[in-house]
Amino acid sequence: MMSDTTAPDSAILEVQNVSRIYRSRRFLFARDDKGITAVDNVSLHVRLGEVFGLVGGSGSGKTTLGRLILRLEHPDGGDIRFEGMSVSSLRGRGLKAFRRRMQMIPQDPYQSLNPYFSIYDTVAEPLVIHGIGDDAARHELVRKALESCGLSPAQDYYPRYPHQLSGGQRQRAAIARVMVLDPDFVIADEPTSMLDASISFSIFRLLSKIRKKQRVTFLFITHDLAAARFFCDRIAVVRQGRIVETGPTVAVIENPQHEYTKSLIAAQPRFSFVKNPAEGEV
């Protein structure tokens, strides 16, 4: 695998100088506007089997970067390589093969499931699309996926529709839909931002379990440093479309170099249920 970057050979994903600029639609005599730069000349690499965190505030471009990697959008500059293949050049069959290997866990479980699909159809759809197995084999795969995501007995969930599930259950169904394809690379875009704390925690535990069992590489997008610390091996801090700091999670959080990282850490809410006389009231 030839690569002209500094990324190590173990990199499964390389992002090289990628930019994405949103321009308003130009019309006849409208002046040329600069547009909004959502992702500005970002480079990073993700190693096989690690969990890479993308941490940043709202509007920092972290979700856009995820969408670029998933090829839901095209970069305005730079290149994204998945196992050395340029993602943006994928077409037809190559793209479909890529889609089978790279998956996304959605942000909002209330919006990311088609209301007209039963849970069985939702989870089985990727198998149908990729023509994996016959009916019986699919049935088995769906059952396994649902049960490994904590929806068991799976049969109870088959005929249900998203509106009949709680937020946590929906997110588990969405994860089952991702995992049923047995992907190599998963982008999790704030998978718990719409869920309450205890359910978030159980979703994290589920993701950790999946990671250990299936050898999946994760790109974890979050605004929550605590979650990143819990889950990620390395993180990159993103601000206004640029990476300001990157490194092993513990190193970045314990010893932040950039002002923005420091302010993010300072802004982290600390809840203390025992009054600490040294810190005063919180």
């Binding site: 990311s112 759809e125 839909r177």
Partner: peptide, 11 residues
């Protein structure tokens, strides 16, 4: 988002 999810699934 569910349309994006369908695209990601390869639909």
């Amino acid at each position: 988002p569910f349309i994006d999810m369908a695209r990601v699934a390869g639909a």
